[in-house]
């Protein structure tokens, strides 16, 4: 006996879940995320421990989470691919014939991508932290999760990576082109801050603080930094950028011809 009920949002979510796990790029970008973030956090910690230099401003928390910046690349790529490959292959027409409510399809994609990157993001954030602190512990330089701001930074690392993936999904839906969308995401997140650093004066510093990756990355800090927004302020600003991009993506996705 076949089921004869109306298709609902959860069916679209189930479909997107199957879609995501039935292509190789998902597995590879998640594996790359795990290896690169944890690996680089650990490597940096080892480099610090074996070197003779010891600064008073040493922040074991920030060091231990430095690898997460590379997760920005891998999860950003995953976020773009989730939608851009549908356009590249023509699958989008099949997908929209199956789920013609545009907002439902995009929301299902966002939910599935968000859930997976949240789980993986938190996992790599905590793993980076514990592994690096274990390395610092060999020289009694480690901190615990109980240190001021530390739990927030580690949890925030996973949240930041989740927002990166969602932002990338939005950019992918707007540009509908893999290479273009990846270039746009990485350009905004990594190249803009380089230019921002050259901006003069007080307004220049303000702009620099408000640039997406600087604002979003503030959640990873455990020491007060004058060149950066407060952790949750920065995170909120970045969440705002993500929301704006997603709103534009939803509007365009609903309006445009497939």
């Amino acid at each position: 006996m076949r089921i004869r009920r109306k298709a609902r949002f959860r069916d679209a979510v189930a479909s997107e879940w199957t879609k995501l796990w039935s292509v190789r790029s998902t597995f590879w970008s998640l594996l790359a995320t795990v290896v690169v973030t944890i690996g680089l956090s650990a490597l940096l910690s080892i480099a610090y421990v074996v070197s003779a230099a010891r600064g008073p401003s040493f922040d074991p928390g920030a060091y231990g989470l430095a690898g997460l910046n590379f997760g920005v690349i891998t999860l950003g790529v995953l976020g773009v691919l989730v939608i851009s490959t549908e356009y590249a292959t023509g699958m989008i027409r099949t997908s929209l014939a199956a789920v013609p409510r545009r907002s439902r399809l995009l929301a299902a994609k966002a939910l599935v991508l968000g859930l997976i990157t949240l789980v993986v993001g938190e996992a790599v954030s905590f793993a980076s932290f514990f592994l690096s602190q274990a390395i610092f512990a060999t020289k009694d330089l480690d901190v615990t999760l109980g240190a001021p701001g530390m739990l927030r930074a580690v949890l925030g690392g996973g949240l930041y990576l989740t927002l990166i993936a969602l932002l990338s999904l939005g950019v992918g839906a707007i540009l509908r082109h893999t290479a273009g969308a990846i270039t746009a995401v990485l350009g905004v997140l990594f190249v803009l801050p380089i230019f921002g650093a050259f901006l003069p004066g007080g307004w220049g510093r303000t702009v620099q603080k408000l640039l997406p990756s600087n604002a979003g990355g503030a959640i990873l800090a455990t020491r007060e930094l004058p060149a950066s927004l407060a952790p949750w302020t920065g995170f909120t600003v970045f969440a705002g950028y993500t929301a704006v991009v997603l709103v534009i993506a939803f509007v365009l996705f609903a309006r445009r011809d497939a």
Binding site: D11, A12, S15, S22, T89, M91, T94, S95, V99
Partner: peptide, 20 residues
């Protein structure tokens, strides 16, 4: 209009799930 990386079965399964 198919993702070439997906198997025929997975492709159809994705569509099937979206419509219960």
């Amino acid at each position: 209009a198919v993702h070439g990386g997906r198997s025929a079965y997975q492709h159809l399964l994705c569509l099937a799930r979206s419509n219960a």
